[in-house]
Amino acid sequence: MFNIPAITWTLTAVLMLGGSYHVLQATRSHHVTDRVNNSLHALMNVLMAAMLWNLAPSTMLAQIAVLAGAALWFIIQAVARPEFKILCAGSQGRLKCAYHSLSMAGAALMATMMGQMSTTAGHEIVPAGGMSMPHAHHAMTAATPTTATATLNHLPNLAIPLTIIFATAAVVFIALLLRNRKPATTAPNKTVPKHSPRKQHSLEALGAAIMALMFATMA
Rank of each mutant, 00 (worst) to 15 (best):
M214A: 09
A71W: 01
G93T: 10
E83F: 09
R28M: 11
P197Y: 11
Q116C: 12
L67M: 12
G106R: 05
A143K: 04
V126F: 07
A143F: 01
M114C: 07
A148R: 00
A56H: 13
F2G: 06
A143Y: 02
V66F: 05
F84M: 11
A65C: 07
C97G: 06
S196K: 10
G93P: 07
A70Y: 00
A42C: 05
S202R: 12
R198F: 10
P156R: 02
R94F: 06
Q116F: 10
A150C: 06
G129V: 07
T151W: 04
L17I: 11
M110I: 04
P82T: 10
I160M: 12
M60K: 04
H135V: 14
S91N: 10
L95M: 11
A50E: 12
C97A: 15
L47C: 02
G130M: 14
G130Q: 12
N189H: 15
A128P: 15
R179L: 14
Q63G: 05
L176R: 13
L40F: 08
L87N: 03
S202E: 14
T10G: 03
L52P: 05
Q200Y: 14
I160Q: 13
T149P: 00
A78H: 00
H22G: 02
L52W: 02
V126I: 15
H22I: 02
N45P: 01
F215D: 06
V36R: 03
M214H: 06
L40K: 07
Q92G: 09
A208H: 08
L177Y: 15
M117Y: 10
T149I: 13
V14T: 12
N157T: 06
I165N: 03
A89F: 07
T151Q: 05
I125S: 04
L72K: 04
S132L: 05
W53D: 03
A209P: 05
G115E: 07
A108K: 04
L109K: 03
H195P: 00
